[in-house]
Simulated assay, not measured.
Amino acid sequence: MMATTHVFAGLAVVAPIAYAAPEFAIALAVGAILGGLAPDFDLVAVHRRTLHFPLSGLAVVVPAVGIAVSVPSSATVGFAAFAVAAWLHAASDAIGGGPEMDPWNDRSERAVYDHVRGRWIRPRRWIRYDGAPEDAALAVVLAIPAVLVFDDWISAVVLGGVAVSLVYALVRRELVAWVPDWLE
């Protein structure tokens, strides 16, 4: 899935909490945005293995949420949002395709690495590849709660992300031809 889809998923999860506790809205949004993006910083390493923790990430999520509920502050709530969004990103990569640049030609059976079992989880391909039409549709749907709940710059970032998502989805299949050989 697109990075924006992961960000919007994180924001959708924290939106009800931000609505109920608006004093934490900015911390929740920043945590969810950064957490939704963070796992993909492993693009320069072994993508979907180095910073993706689909099962073991729960070992961070559960105590982070527990602390945020017990001792709510901008820091604890923001970190919990980060942990949840990062875990959700890693776990949801299994419902998509593999990490290859051209999944319509070179289909991998590796969606995301399971560090607990020491093996790759196979892709389910409910979302065929990042930027597929169904990925763009999911991104738009997941962005709605954030636009409705968050104010000002957060809504602007989300709407900008929706625009980027739609443009990316329109040109995704052509991008493979533009990528230098050394990046593949």
Rank of each mutant, 00 (worst) to 15 (best):
F150W: 10
G97W: 07
A132I: 04
L51W: 14
V65N: 05
P123R: 04
S70N: 04
H52D: 09
I17C: 02
S74M: 06
V71H: 14
V30C: 12
A12R: 03
P54D: 03
L170M: 13
A85I: 02
T50V: 00
A21G: 03
A68M: 07
S165D: 09
P133D: 03
V7P: 04
L159H: 09
F41C: 04
V46G: 04
A91I: 01
A139L: 06
A59N: 03
F8I: 00
A38C: 09
F53E: 06
F150C: 10
D152L: 12
I121E: 00
A90D: 02
V179G: 07
D151K: 13
Y19S: 13
V176Q: 04
V65C: 14
G36D: 08
D181H: 10
F8A: 11
L88S: 04
R119K: 15
N105W: 10
E174W: 15
W87I: 08
L170A: 15
A75W: 14
E109R: 14
R49I: 05
L175F: 10
S70G: 10
S70L: 14
V13G: 03
A68W: 06
L159P: 08
A177K: 15
V13W: 06
V44F: 12
R49E: 12
L43Y: 02
E134K: 08
V158K: 05
A94D: 03
L37Q: 12
A137K: 09
L183S: 11
L175K: 11
W126F: 15
R125Q: 13
A146G: 15
L11E: 01
P39C: 09
V65Q: 03
V71D: 12
L159V: 15
D181G: 03
P22N: 10
W104F: 06
A111K: 02
V46H: 10
L34V: 15
A3H: 06
D42M: 11
R107V: 10
V77G: 00
I144W: 09
G35S: 07
H6T: 03
E100G: 14
A146N: 01
F8R: 04
A169K: 08
L58Q: 04
V179Q: 13
S73L: 04
Y129D: 01
P99V: 09
V158D: 00
G35K: 00
D114L: 02
I121L: 08
M1K: 09
V44H: 11
A25Y: 03
V60D: 03
D42L: 09
L28Q: 00
A85N: 07
E184V: 14
Y129I: 02
